[in-house]
Amino acid sequence: MADLEQIRTRVTLTEHEVINTHSTDFPGNYAGYDDTWSLAKFEEKFRVNIVSLEGSELEFDMVGIDAAIANAFRRILLAEVPTMAIEKVFVHNNTSIIQDEVLAHRLGLIPIHADPRLFEYRQEGDDEGTAEDTLEFHLNVKCTRNPQAPKDSTDPDEIYKDHKVYTKHLKWVPLGNQAELYSEGDIKPVHDDILIAKLRPGQEMDLKLHCVKGIGRDHAKFSPVATASYRLLPEIVLTEEVKGERADRLVRCFSPGVMEVTEENGVKKARVVNSRLDTCSREIFRHPDLKDCVKLNKLRDHFIFSVESTGALAPDVLVCEATKVLMGKCRKFLSELDAAADTEQQNLR
């Protein structure tokens, strides 16, 4: 029975393989278990604990959910939560050494601080755009010599003016009624110090940029996260007491802070302190005399999420949006099913 529980709730790391990686808790698989889906049971077990939320980084625990669904959230965060990004670049003039198409690609990757929930998707084939689906920026920079520069200076920062094009040079131009809806601080590049290009005297750039709403599946520039990943909570079980010199060696097999050596009546003993910090390196299996003293597991339903936003939306907002996207998918197909049932009814009549 204990073994069964282990298979159901733990992923086990052994010397040469990781076992019990698949979820098996489906009805009919185990005698004596009721694995039928029940929302009440799920709600009772499910919990979320925010570990840290600072600026654009979020770490939280999601416990009591299956990998299939946790992974759906992760995938949606990466590829299906929309953001705004530069999609069209109208090049009026570009005499810099960076080619138009390379420049356009670079510009596309700049994270734009604008709430995508306030905008619509641009219709296919529409090149103009409207105030509801487009943000316009202008980039107009011309490099000149600095007449005040010291005579013998060779430093480009001193002898040239505007020779570095940064994201701060992007000027937002409100379309339609956008000036009333948003203030200057709402719409801007997330960072104002991203280097776009370098110029020399006489070179200039005169561009018109259109930002549109899109999703990461279409192009990675629309992805709202720098990273979104999860890992399972590690569990380290000591199956026997490890003492003396072996205890020191055992502790050194794990990441700092995972285990510690305590001294009781002059005898050193190893003890697990915080298995969460472990990187699951499995170094322990290189020590033949130690490898049978511990069991390395991971909790199958305990996900440690780490989400790092690119800055358009706060990371906690992104996770909420991800759940909404998954709900939207469910509703889309439910209404399709309803529509199909309706037409069937009409055909029968």
Binding site: W37, L39, F42, E43, F46, R47, V48, N49, I50, L53, F60, M62, I65, I69, F73, D316, V319, C320, T323, K324, L326, M327, C330, R331, F333, L334, L337
Partner: peptide, 27 residues
Amino acid sequence: LRRGLTELNALCEHVQNTFEGAVEEYK
């Protein structure tokens, strides 16, 4: 299929509410 979609939708709703509650509490 309909039941699966309905249950998945209800699950997401609970995840969202729990998550929002946890964020509020943390803040």
